[in-house]
C-alpha cells in the first residue's frame, strides 16, 4: 500500500528504518500489550456493561439506559459519595500541601538533631495504609482511646472522631497529615535548592520573613507545589483503603456472616466514589450500575487531570 515518497533514499536505508521501527516496537511491546489488555479492553468492556444487566451468574441482557438512570437518579448514595470525594480532594489536598510545606520549612531550619527529626517526621509515611488506619481508629476511639483519655484529663471536650459523621472526614485528614513524609521530602529538596544568595540579597534589601517567602521562596518552589497538588488530587480521587478500613473498624459491627456491611460509616460520611464502585460491583453484583459509576469516575478523573496538567506542563517536558 505504501509507496515511499520520491525523495526517500535507497532500499538499504528503508530496511534500516523498518529495523529501527521493529526495535522500537520490541522495546515497547510489554507496555503495548499491557496497555491493550489491561487498559484498552477493560475500558471498552466497561462501556459495554454499562448498558447491560449482569449479575455475574445469568447471561447479560441489554437494558438500555436503565443503569445510568438508576445510578444518577434513583440511587441515593451517589450524591453523598460524590460530595465526600470532592470534599476530600479539596480539604485533604490543600491541608496536606500547606502542612507538608510547613514541615519542610521547619526541617530546613533545624540545627540540632536534624537527622532524628527528619526520620521521625518521615517514618509515619511508611506505615502501610491499613496499619496506619487501624492504629488511628484505636488512638481516636471515643471510649478508650489514648487521645480522648488525654484530652479528658486536660478537661478538653473531646469529639467522637471516626464515630461522628461531622468528624469522620476531618479524622481521615488528620491521618493523612500524619503520613506527610512524602511531601516533606520533596519540599525539603526544593527548599534546599533555592540559592542562598537570593535570601541574603533580599535580606539586604530589608525584606522580612514573609516578604522573603513571598518573593524568593515561593517563585522557586511553585512547580513543586503544583506537582504536589496534581498528584494529591489524583491520589485523593482514588481514596479508598483508609476510608473503608476506618469506617468498618470504627463502626464496631462484626462482620456479618450473612448480609454485607455498607461502607461509609458513620451515616455515609466516609463513603467515597471508589468504595461505591466496589459496593455495587462486589457486594450487590450489579455489574451494570458499577460500570456506570466507573465511567463517571473516569470522566471526572480525566477532566480534572487534563485541567491540572495544562497548568503544570512539567510532567511531560524535558525531552532530552
Amino acid at each position: 500500500m505504501a509507496t515511499p515518497p520520491a525523495t526517500r533514499p535507497a532500499p538499504e536505508l528503508r530496511r534500516r528504518h523498518t529495523r529501527e521501527r521493529l526495535r522500537t516496537l520490541g522495546f515497547l511491546s510489554p507496555w503495548l500489550i499491557g496497555f491493550t489488555v489491561f487498559f484498552g479492553y477493560p475500558l471498552l468492556a466497561t462501556v459495554y456493561f454499562s448498558f447491560m444487566h449482569y449479575n455475574q451468574i445469568q447471561a447479560p441482557s441489554f437494558v438500555g439506559l436503565r443503569n445510568w438512570t438508576y445510578v444518577l437518579d434513583r440511587m441515593p448514595l451517589f450524591g453523598p459519595a460524590l460530595w465526600n470525594t470532592l470534599w476530600l480532594v479539596v480539604v485533604m489536598v490543600s491541608l496536606r500541601v500547606v502542612f507538608g510545606l510547613g514541615i519542610g520549612l521547619l526541617v530546613t531550619r533545624i540545627k540540632t538533631g536534624a537527622g532524628f527529626f527528619r526520620t521521625a517526621f518521615y517514618l509515619p509515611y511508611l506505615a502501610p495504609p491499613v496499619t496506619a488506619t487501624v492504629a488511628f481508629v484505636f488512638l481516636l476511639n471515643p471510649g478508650t482511646g489514648p487521645v480522648n483519655e488525654a484530652l479528658g484529663a486536660l478537661g478538653i471536650p473531646a469529639p467522637n472522631w471516626f464515630n461522628d459523621p461531622d468528624w469522620a472526614k476531618p479524622s481521615l485528614v488528620l491521618l493523612s497529615l500524619w503520613g506527610i513524609g512524602d511531601l516533606m521530602v520533596i519540599f525539603m529538596a526544593a527548599l534546599l535548592d533555592v540559592p542562598r544568595e537570593q535570601y541574603e540579597a533580599a535580606e539586604l534589601d530589608g525584606a522580612g520573613v514573609l516578604a522573603r517567602f513571598r518573593y524568593v521562596t515561593w517563585p522557586a518552589i511553585t512547580p513543586i507545589v503544583m506537582f504536589a497538588v496534581v498528584t494529591g488530587v489524583v491520589q485523593t480521587m482514588q481514596y479508598y483503603t483508609q476510608a473503608l478500613v476506618a469506617g468498618k473498624l470504627a463502626s464496631g459491627v462484626s462482620i456479618g456472616p450473612g448480609s454485607v456491611i455498607q461502607p461509609g460509616y458513620p451515616d455515609g460520611s466516609t463513603l467515597t466514589v471508589p468504595q461505591l464502585v466496589y459496593s455495587l460491583g462486589f457486594q450487590n453484583f450489579d455489574t451494570g450500575a458499577a460500570c456506570v459509576l466507573s465511567l463517571v469516575l473516569f470522566a471526572i478523573a480525566m477532566a480534572v487531570t487534563s485541567l491540572l496538567m495544562r497548568r503544570s506542563t512539567g510532567l511531560l517536558s524535558a525531552e532530552d
Binding site: F38, Y240, P274, V277, C291, L297, F298, A301
Partner: peptide
C-alpha cells in the same frame, strides 16, 4: 501518564470478570 492518573476502580470490574 494518563494510565498513571487513572483510578484503578475504573477498570476493575471487567478485569475481574
Amino acid at each position: 501518564v494518563a494510565t498513571m492518573m487513572l483510578p484503578p476502580q475504573v477498570i476493575v470490574i471487567p478485569m475481574y470478570l
